[in-house]
Design a protein around this nucleic acid. Structure first.
Lengths: 145, 145
DNA sequence: TCATTTGGTGGACTTTGTCCACTATTATTA
DNA sequence: TAATAATAGTGGACAAAGTCCACCAAATGA
């Protein structure tokens, strides 16, 4: 069990990192996509053939809101929406060629942002930083208990 | 310099942590305060006598938006706003007794959320997690270069 | 002193997100 | 199997969050 002081450190990190992420996420370079729309697009890239419901669950979004976003992404010809043959209520989502492209662009932009973020750090600090992020990722998100 | 693969790990962390923070931040238990309002309050707690401008800079908010939030927090009797004697354009912000109290409540709620987040982890994992957060905090935010 | 910058504010607006009711389909159960 | 409940997705109406612009008053700088 962590002490309150240790928890306070995690919370302090959270507060500061909220600001960092807020600033990073603000500038989705392609002005036609909002931050959440970009997240949805990237989620489809990450999990091809995902359903709207799973997108919503995965990203913590309202289903109705998700539906609208998908409609827009579909209209922009970034996402294919087809009916599921298994469950006629459900849809299957995938990226179009344009969608793949868009994700690639978002990816490159995001890489540059991270590179900027760590640019002033020494190589040793950068490595330490990477290892810490990697550790957190593993512990929090790759839990196969 | 980190490799693209290492940067990808950081970005993967960012995406997932965006969702975590989004879910955590959604439930600011006191329904009268939005997430951003709570952040402003906590910032004043963190840096007493801060100015609206510094709040805005610090949290990456629009000055106009910040002004409105402060007005609301003042109306709720959580924040004192007094004119600066040094610069008559500027204001000096501080917490009222109610404000201090509110911050304390937010604090306790946040602690519980973090405890919940790590509840399923082994003590060893929890410690490792804490150390990683702590390291990132130090490298990214306590940089005195 | 006169032009420029800065801190802060309000009005009008856009964007983002929520809530609710509804349809169509699938799962459950009597 | 018929009736009932649960689920996936959607649209309308709305609320919350955030942005943009114009403005004032004070400070700064030439």
């Amino acid at each position: 069990m962590l002490s309150l002081e240790e928890i306070a450190t995690i919370r302090s990190f959270n507060r500061k990192y909220t600001t960092v992420l807020g600033l990073l996420n603000r500038q989705v370079f392609d002005t036609t996509l909002s931050f959440t729309e970009a997240r949805v697009l990237q989620k489809i890239a990450e999990i091809p053939n995902i359903s709207p419901k799973n997108i919503a669950n995965n990203l913590g979004l309202d289903p109705s809101y998700t539906s609208r976003i998908l409609k827009k992404l579909n209209k922009l010809d970034l996402v294919n929406i087809v009916a599921s043959s298994v469950d006629a209520r459900s849809k299957i989502l995938s990226l179009t060629a344009d969608g793949e492209n868009q994700v690639k662009i978002l990816d490159e932009d995001s890489n540059i942002q991270i590179e900027d973020l760590i640019a002033d750090l020494s190589p040793a600090e950068q490595t330490e930083l990477y290892q810490s992020f990697s550790t957190i990722e593993k512990i929090l998100f790759n839990k196969e208990h």
